[in-house]
Amino acid sequence: MNRNGMMFLTFLCGCVVLTGCSKGPGPEALSTPVKLPLTIYADNYPVAYFTERISGPLAKVILPVAADRDPAYWKPKEEDIARIQAADLIVLNGADYSKWSTLMSLPPSRVVDTSRGFKGRYMYIEDAVVHSHGAEGEHSHAGLASYTWLDPDQAILQAEAIAKELKAKVPAESKAIEERFDGLKKDLTLLRERLQKLADKKNEPLLASHPVYDYLARHAGWNLKSVHWEPDELPGDEGWKELTKLLEKHQARWMIWEGTPLPETVQRLNALGINSVVFDCSPNRPKEGDYLTVMNHNLDELSRVYDYEPDGASPASH
């Protein structure tokens, strides 16, 4: 065979091989290569804390909300959206906690809804204003109670969901992730035991300044009713009327606050025989300490409620 003949044969073989190979794109898996450390965005401090504890050096965990803002009502800017969409993992509290996450476009394959595992136990905020219009029927905009982490059992489940996703993301680090999760679970279990000891003491009517303690109340078996007061605002006449009406059926002696209430409010509550205690839900990163520090401090504060005897010394209320 001459040189031209050989070249032609080579060309023909090349064509056959190429034709045989070109079967079009095959099924694509939705997994992108993992580059450590992972970039993880969280929508509130508790899940950010759990992620930091479980991931250790494997991830950089970002809570993109300014320290003085409530993460539930944060509004991301265009550049925030692009950054969150590009993250390796987006850890959400779930239970409709962050409004922005329901209005933004997120890639479900990289989103961990940490409370999805117990969605059957979600609670709806009682006493929310219901409205209806058009043909859609009655509905409420208040929706789900979303402070799920306040129930320590649920907090453990949320941490477990994060650990599971991290193990799937970095299988080579599964053992280390599991060990770190066990450490966190131990700490959360200690919190649960402390809370249980307090709850076992007595069951008296309690008030909450805001309807955010539903899961905590259910876990601890509290008899809790909520008003809609802000710690840094004076309740208006409507607010006091609402409280007076509530006290007729629910004779509480303690009101639990998310933050330190104004002295005027505390004084007026004291006049009604109601003491104030702060239980910081810690939705955003604390100025000092961490999640466990804040929760332990909350339990210290709560012990005042349970140790309080009305005929004894006056309460060291806020």
Binding site: D127, V129, V130, H131, S132, H133, A135, E138
Partner: peptide
């Protein structure tokens, strides 16, 4: 107090 019904005109 707990319920508001709007017409379809909203």
């Amino acid at each position: 107090e707990k319920k508001v019904v709007a017409s379809a005109a909203i």
